[in-house]
Simulated assay, not measured.
Amino acid sequence: MNLYRSARAVAGASGDDVIDWESAADAAKAVTDPGSLELEAGEREAYARDVREARDAVRTVANVEFDVPDTVEIQNRHHWIDANIATFERVMETLEQQVPPGTFPGVARTINTGTMTVLLAFLGRNVLGQYDPLLLAETPEDDHALYFVRPNILSAADKLNVDPDRFRRWIAFHEVTHAAEFGAAPWLSDHLESRMEAGIATLTEGSFDRAAFRDLDAAMTVVEGYAELLMDHAFDDEYADLRRKLDARRQGRGPLQQLFRRLLGLGLKERQYERGKNFFETVVESADLETASVVWEGPAQLPTQDELDDPTLWLQRVDR
Rank of each mutant, 00 (worst) to 15 (best):
L230V: 01
D241G: 04
H78C: 01
S189Y: 10
A7N: 09
E281F: 03
D306S: 13
L123Y: 15
T304Y: 13
D209S: 09
R244P: 03
E238R: 10
A227Y: 01
E290V: 03
L230R: 09
L302P: 01
G35H: 07
L266N: 09
E285G: 04
Q97R: 13
T110Y: 02
F167H: 03
A46H: 13
S194I: 02
I171R: 05
Y4E: 05
H144V: 01
L256W: 13
D217R: 02
T115L: 11
V149L: 05
H191V: 04
D33V: 08
E285D: 15
W170L: 15
P100M: 14
P186R: 06
A121F: 14
L146E: 10
T221Y: 00
Y273L: 11
D163R: 09
S36K: 09
F167I: 13
T110C: 10
L266H: 13
R262P: 02
P151Y: 00
K159G: 05
W21P: 06
A25I: 13
D143G: 09
E53M: 07
E297P: 03
R150T: 06
L192A: 05
T312F: 02
L229M: 08
A198R: 15
L242W: 07
P100A: 12
T32Q: 06
S286M: 06
E193I: 06
N2D: 14
D165T: 14
Q97N: 10
A248S: 12
A83V: 02
R249N: 01
D190Q: 15
V31H: 00
E307R: 04
G267S: 09
N63V: 07
L256D: 10
M92W: 10
F280E: 05
G129I: 08
L302S: 03
P101K: 11
P34R: 10
L268V: 12
L242F: 14
V127E: 15
Q316P: 01
W296T: 06
G15C: 09
L259N: 05
N76D: 13
T32P: 00
G265C: 04
Q257L: 12
E93F: 15
L39V: 01
A212K: 00
A184Y: 11
H191R: 06
Q258I: 00
R320H: 04
I111G: 11
E238T: 14
R253S: 12
A25S: 12
T87S: 13
A198G: 06
P34M: 05
W296L: 06
R52F: 02
A240K: 02
A54D: 11
S189A: 15
G206K: 00
E40N: 10
A27F: 10
L315Q: 04
E274D: 11
A248M: 09
D158W: 01
V68F: 11
L289R: 12
H233F: 08
F182K: 07
N112D: 08
V149N: 04
H79Q: 07
R52K: 03
A172D: 12
G114Q: 08
I171Q: 10
R214S: 12
A234V: 08
L119T: 15
T282G: 00
